[in-house]
Amino acid sequence: MGPEKITLAAPSPSFRLRCKSLNSLRLRRIFDMFDKNGDCMITVSEISQALSLLGLDADTEELETMTQSYIRPGNEGLTYDDFVSLHESLGDTYFGFVQSEEEEQQESDLWEAFKVFDENGDGYISARELQVVLGKLGLVEGNLIDNVHRMIGSVDTNHDGRVDFYEFKEMMRATILPSS
């Protein structure tokens, strides 16, 4: 039995996020996780280690081939900008994602609404942030933190105690978008 080949299944919603600023935030976090030595560059070895930790055994030569055209001459690995280019290329190649102007506007509007709640800009709505916004709106639901935790729990699909943009977007679509 040889090493497992990486095969792509159905596209993950997190891979092809429509909101560029959120996508950028998540890509930055992924890049920083892969960059084990903190030199602002991801080598093939670091990518291989990260994939291995995820339970994916990748052939180093295949990774080298896949990333080589994105590594700038003189560099030993991918810079963040190179990593973004690789990610976009994979998205276009494997998922062919195209979004209409109306969808882009809806996404932008949802992102702006999300940012109202995400006061510290970390990409998540915490119970404390939700409580503050509810208080500013004069809503009594925010008076007790237990109420706020229940509200978060009702939309927190990954059970991390916070609401990310994807969870917020799904909640908003279920709540405000008209049914057809």
Score class of each variant (00 low, 15 high):
residue 85 S to Y: 02
residue 144 L to K: 14
residue 70 Y to H: 04
residue 164 D to E: 01
residue 13 P to Y: 07
residue 82 D to G: 00
residue 142 G to A: 01
residue 3 P to D: 09
residue 103 E to I: 07
residue 87 H to I: 07
residue 21 S to D: 14
residue 15 F to T: 15
residue 150 R to V: 06
residue 123 G to C: 04
residue 90 L to Y: 09
residue 124 Y to C: 06
residue 137 L to P: 04
residue 56 L to P: 01
residue 41 M to S: 13
residue 174 A to K: 15
residue 51 L to A: 09
residue 174 A to D: 14
residue 108 S to Q: 14
residue 137 L to I: 06
residue 140 V to W: 01
residue 42 I to G: 04
residue 69 S to I: 01
residue 34 F to R: 05
residue 87 H to Q: 08
residue 112 E to Q: 00
residue 79 T to D: 03
residue 125 I to N: 03
residue 128 R to A: 06
residue 99 Q to D: 06
residue 114 F to S: 04
residue 48 S to Y: 07
residue 132 V to S: 12
residue 119 E to N: 06
residue 50 A to C: 11
residue 37 N to T: 02
residue 108 S to N: 14
residue 135 G to I: 01
residue 158 N to M: 09
residue 72 R to D: 11
residue 167 E to G: 11
residue 67 T to W: 00
residue 27 L to T: 10
residue 82 D to I: 01
residue 123 G to L: 00
residue 9 A to K: 13
residue 124 Y to R: 12
residue 84 V to H: 03
residue 69 S to F: 12
residue 20 K to D: 15
residue 18 R to P: 03
residue 128 R to S: 15
residue 69 S to G: 05
residue 68 Q to C: 15
residue 72 R to I: 13
residue 74 G to V: 08
residue 16 R to N: 14
residue 16 R to V: 15
residue 61 E to V: 11
residue 55 G to S: 01
residue 147 N to P: 09
residue 4 E to C: 04
residue 125 I to Y: 01
residue 168 F to G: 08
residue 35 D to N: 14
residue 93 T to V: 09
residue 149 H to P: 05
residue 29 R to N: 11
residue 79 T to G: 01
residue 140 V to E: 11
residue 60 T to H: 14
residue 71 I to A: 05
residue 136 K to Q: 13
residue 61 E to R: 13
residue 72 R to W: 07
residue 82 D to W: 02
residue 179 S to C: 10
residue 14 S to Q: 08
residue 103 E to Q: 14
residue 32 D to P: 05
residue 25 L to W: 05
residue 147 N to T: 01
residue 156 D to E: 06
residue 74 G to P: 03
residue 99 Q to H: 04
residue 8 L to R: 14
residue 143 N to I: 04
residue 128 R to D: 15
residue 25 L to S: 09
residue 150 R to A: 12
residue 163 V to L: 05
residue 104 E to Y: 09
residue 139 L to Y: 03
residue 170 E to L: 12
residue 109 D to R: 09
residue 114 F to M: 08
residue 24 S to N: 12
residue 22 L to S: 07
residue 98 V to A: 02
residue 145 I to M: 15
residue 29 R to Y: 09
residue 80 Y to T: 02
residue 101 E to H: 10
residue 4 E to R: 11
residue 58 A to P: 05
residue 9 A to D: 12
residue 163 V to C: 06
residue 32 D to Q: 14
residue 22 L to M: 11
residue 81 D to R: 05
residue 56 L to T: 02
residue 40 C to F: 02
residue 97 F to N: 10
residue 14 S to E: 11
residue 46 E to H: 02
residue 133 V to H: 02
residue 125 I to S: 03
residue 23 N to E: 15
residue 164 D to N: 15
residue 51 L to F: 10
residue 80 Y to V: 00
residue 104 E to N: 08
residue 20 K to S: 15
residue 70 Y to K: 00
residue 144 L to E: 13
residue 162 R to W: 07
residue 173 R to N: 11
residue 114 F to V: 10
residue 162 R to A: 10
residue 33 M to S: 08
residue 122 D to G: 02
residue 94 Y to K: 02
residue 93 T to Y: 09
residue 78 L to P: 00
residue 172 M to Y: 03
residue 118 D to S: 04
residue 51 L to G: 07
residue 20 K to A: 15
residue 39 D to F: 06
residue 87 H to A: 13
residue 167 E to L: 11
residue 65 T to E: 14
residue 123 G to W: 00
residue 172 M to L: 06
residue 48 S to A: 13
residue 61 E to P: 00
residue 157 T to Q: 13
residue 98 V to G: 05
residue 130 L to G: 07
residue 123 G to M: 03
